[in-house]
Amino acid sequence: MVNIRSLDPSASPLDYYGSELRRLREDAGLSQSQLGEAIFCTGSLIGQIETAHKVPTREFSERIDAALMTGGFFSRLVGLVLRSQLPSWFQEYAEMEAKAAYISTYQCQLVYGLLQTPAYARAVLSVEYTDRLEEMVAARVERQRILEREKPPVLWAVLDEAVLFREIGGREVMRGQLEHLLTFSREPWVQIQVLPFEAGEHAAVMGSFNVLRFDSNPDLFYSESYDSGHMTANPQVIRERSVGYSRLQATALSVEESAELIARVMEERYGHGAVA
């Protein structure tokens, strides 16, 4: 039996998406099965999304736009839907990250979210989000779309050398992740440095942090703990962390040396001939 659960479009972006999908499908005179056949999925999937039981993907949204001739409506809406799947304490940061002109990040354990492959992100997120893993992975990949803009933000990432050796998801996943990092050497807006073990004590021994800079708003400092994020525009904090970040950049390997190290670790530790 067709699920006709009533939705409150104002309850969430997902509910709004579902209610609009149902309305426009019915306006087009299509059943769930007919629309599913048109976009190469099941009518059941259409029903699950219309009733907010399943989160739509970007690919699904693009196909819906083409089938219902909605002028890109769902492709625009899906970004909001996916962002709403992020933890509530992280959503404010994600919104500011998307508006930033310059992102500086130091990561001591993991590759920064904007630079993660889907496989690496899935392995990281599977630790905490087993019940809605695919939604969380889709939301993380959606965040990365800011790097595909015509004018993307400048992203400068300093990764602790430990990030390269922490085997997330297994050797194949790590090889793919390090190979992905190397592809950014062709992107002038993305710079990646590695802070080597031999640096010893350094300006970020207290942990990972980000500094966001904007064209017309105050800079922001961001750090997080287990289940919460802390964001501040306090000028003294910004000044101290900006100086600290500059010291990290000076201590880290150059961009070119970092790429060489990433490539070497990729082959020696995660290459097909490497010893497990």
Rank of each mutant, 00 (worst) to 15 (best):
N3H: 15
R5C: 13
P9E: 03
A11C: 09
S12E: 08
S19V: 15
L21A: 09
R23H: 08
L24E: 05
D27A: 11
L30T: 02
Q32D: 04
Q34W: 05
I39V: 14
F40E: 15
T42I: 09
G47P: 11
Q48F: 05
R58N: 12
D65K: 04
A66H: 05
G71I: 02
R76I: 04
R76H: 08
V78C: 05
G79F: 15
L80V: 07
V81P: 00
V81T: 05
A94S: 13
G113Q: 03
Q116F: 10
P118K: 06
A123G: 09
V124G: 03
S126T: 08
D131F: 13
R132V: 04
E134P: 05
A138P: 03
R140L: 02
E142T: 12
R143V: 08
Q144G: 11
E148Q: 09
P153G: 02
V154K: 02
L155D: 01
A157H: 00
R166I: 07
G170D: 03
E172I: 08
R175A: 05
L178E: 01
L182A: 06
F184T: 14
V194E: 00
G200D: 12
A204L: 08
R213T: 12
F214V: 10
D219W: 02
Y222S: 03
Y222C: 08
G229A: 12
G229I: 07
M231Y: 02
M231S: 12
V237T: 14
R239Y: 13
S246A: 04
S246V: 10
R247V: 12
L253I: 14
V255Q: 12
E256V: 15
V265Q: 00
M266Q: 15
E268K: 14
R269D: 12
A274N: 06
